[in-house]
Every structure is written in C-alpha cells, then in structure tokens.
C-alpha cells in the first residue's frame, strides 16, 4: 500500500470515526446518568437527518401522509443543521418524559426502560414511514454552497483527495466534541452532571434537581445523535426510516469498545472503529460491519472493561 493511499484511508477513517464518536456520545451521556442504554437514540439520529433535510427546503416523495410536502423556504445548511437538531434534542426530551421518567418514578428495573426505549424506536421508525414513506432522500448538491466537492491534500502528482462532506463531518464533529468537553468539565451544570453520574442520591441532597439534569442530558444526547445522522445523511443519503438502526448497532459497539459511560472512551472507540473499517479492502467492503464487530470482540477479550473504561469495584 503506498503512502498516499494510506493517508487517504486514515482521513476517511477519521471522518466517519468522528461521526461514530458523536453518535456514541449520545448513548454514553444517558448511560452514565441512568445506567441504561437508550435504544431510541438510533431513531433520533434518523429524525435529526429528516428534520434538517426538511429545513433546507428538501421536498418529500410521493408516498406517505406528507407526500410532496416541502417547506416554502429553504434554510442554509449550517442553520438547518442547528435548528433541525435542536428539534431532535427536544424530541429526545419528550422521550425521557414519556418512556423513562414514569418508569423511574415507579422504581422500575432499568431493563424495563431499555425495552420501553426500544418501543419508542419502533414507533418513530413507523411514524416516519407513515409520514414520508420509505424513499431514499439525498441532500441537494448545492448543500455546501460554493465549496468544491473535494479538497486535495497531496500534490498534483500524488493527489490525496478528500471529499468536502468528509471534511465537514470531521470538522463539525470535532467542534461539537470540544464544546461538549468544555461544557462538562468547565461549567457549573457540567460539574453537576458529573456529580449526578457518580451518585444521584447525594447530588439530590446537595440541592441538585436531578430530573432537570436528566432532561438536559437527553437534549444533549438527541442533539449529538441528530447531528451525526445529518452528517451521514448529507454525506451519503438518508436511506429511509431504518437509516439509523444499523448505525445504532455500531454505536453500541463503539461505547462498549471505549468503555461504558466513558466520554473519552466514546471518542477513542469511535475513531478506532472508523479507522478499522476504512482499512477494509475495497473487494471486501460488504463485510465492513463484520470487521468492526470482530475488532470489538478481540479488544474486549484483552480489556473487558473497554479501552478507557475503569474496572469498577462496587460495594455489594
């Protein structure tokens, strides 16, 4: 393998890996506070992409209740990305209120919340199909305005072409990841979130309204997941209502590889799986998923707590 191809693959891997990280962080945030995997996250990923698509003025197809619907205006992509995924975040807040909080209030086992969130995912997928059909939607070519379709990081003789969408994936993910890290490590609310993640009861006794923080966590989770969905949708296409489900499985692989509940773990896990996938040779590309999960198995055999997870010893 020559150096340019290697560089190309690393860049590809980093681009998709950073989106994996962004998406997986949504699982991580909720898990670290509620100790439960929120299976509706994959559906919110899908929703974020649809919301943004609609807000950029994209038209819907011939099927479903909203056949041929289209907003009378089209927002520029960056604005639609933020607004569309604020909507995704609000949806996630609604999911917390409907599917998580009532169970929590009754002291139900976390496993029930997991099943309930799976139910929400199914409902959302079906709702999307009912509203806009199962068609594939592609963001219009002019989504990124005047930006060229690809940037050459090599020389004229040894070109290292990187698609603009991949660069945008990487840059947007990086900006969001840095902002989230600063928020969690530097602000009062971020510190409170970490406190709740460690010991919810004590946090409540110190005057922290944990229900409000859980709601915020769901918003952040939905916002991150939606951005990930939008970036993938804009880079390839929105493949239909099941768009997020395959991605959902990969997100689980990422958080388990990185270490459940660990924020740096989700980032490292995402980048590792992204890079592993990008090194799958072209003729075996159909087995990409298998490679990612094989990688997960091997890593877990060596480190069962995940790459950055801590072996937790709890009082019994």
């Amino acid at each position: 393998m020559d150096a340019t191809l290697l560089l190309q693959q690393i860049l590809n891997g980093l681009a998709i890996g950073s989106v994996f990280a962004l998406f997986a962080l949504g699982y991580t945030l909720v898990f670290s506070i509620l100790r439960v995997i929120n299976f509706s996250h994959a559906a919110v990923f899908t929703l974020g992409a649809y919301f943004t698509y609609a807000l950029t003025g994209g038209a819907f197809g011939f099927n479903g209740l909203l056949a041929n619907a289209q907003l009378p205006f089209g927002l520029p992509f960056p604005v639609a990305l933020v607004l569309g995924n604020i909507l995704a975040g609000l949806t996630a807040m609604g999911i917390e209120r409907l599917a998580f909080k009532p169970l929590r209030a009754r002291g139900a086992d976390p496993l029930l919340a997991l099943v309930s969130s799976l139910g929400v995912a199914v409902v959302i997928v079906n709702l999307i199909q009912y509203l806009v059909g199962a068609e594939l939607y592609t963001f219009p070519a002019e989504t990124y305005g005047a930006l060229p379709p690809a940037v050459n990081f090599g020389t004229a003789e040894h070109p290292v072409q990187v698609r603009t969408t991949q660069l945008i994936m990487f840059v947007v993910s990086l900006v969001v990841l840095i902002a989230l890290t600063l928020f969690i490590n530097r602000t009062k609310i971020g510190t409170a979130l970490r406190a709740v993640a460690e010991d919810e009861t004590t946090a409540r006794l110190l005057g922290i309204d944990t229900d409000k923080l859980i709601l915020l966590t769901f918003f952040l989770s939905g916002f991150l997941g939606g951005i990930a969905g939008t970036l993938v949708g804009a880079s390839v296409s929105i493949s239909g209502p099941y768009f997020g489900i395959a991605f959902g499985l990969k997100g689980l692989a990422v958080i388990i590889l990185g270490g459940l509940g660990s924020i740096p773990g989700a980032v490292v896990g995402g980048l590792a799986i992204g890079l592993a996938e990008s090194f799958v040779p072209g003729q075996y590309v159909a087995y990409k998923e298998a490679v990612a999960f094989a990688f997960l198995f091997i890593a877990l055999l060596i480190r069962p707590q995940g790459l950055l997870g801590r072996a937790v010893i709890r009082k019994v």
Binding site: K188, I189, T191, R194, A195, E198, L206, G207
Partner: peptide
C-alpha cells in the same frame, strides 16, 4: 464524588446558591 476534585465537590455544594443556568453558562 470520588471522581470530582476537592474543589468541584465543594462547588457542587453551592449549586442551589448560584443562579447561572445552562444557557448563560
């Protein structure tokens, strides 16, 4: 909160005595 610093533990205790919210923070 064993994972938080000494300072962060005490600052968490002041949570209700401060007013900044998510947005302003």
């Amino acid at each position: 909160f064993g994972e938080l610093s000494v300072l962060e533990n005490v600052m968490t205790g002041r949570h209700t005595r401060t007013h900044s919210n998510v947005l302003s923070g």
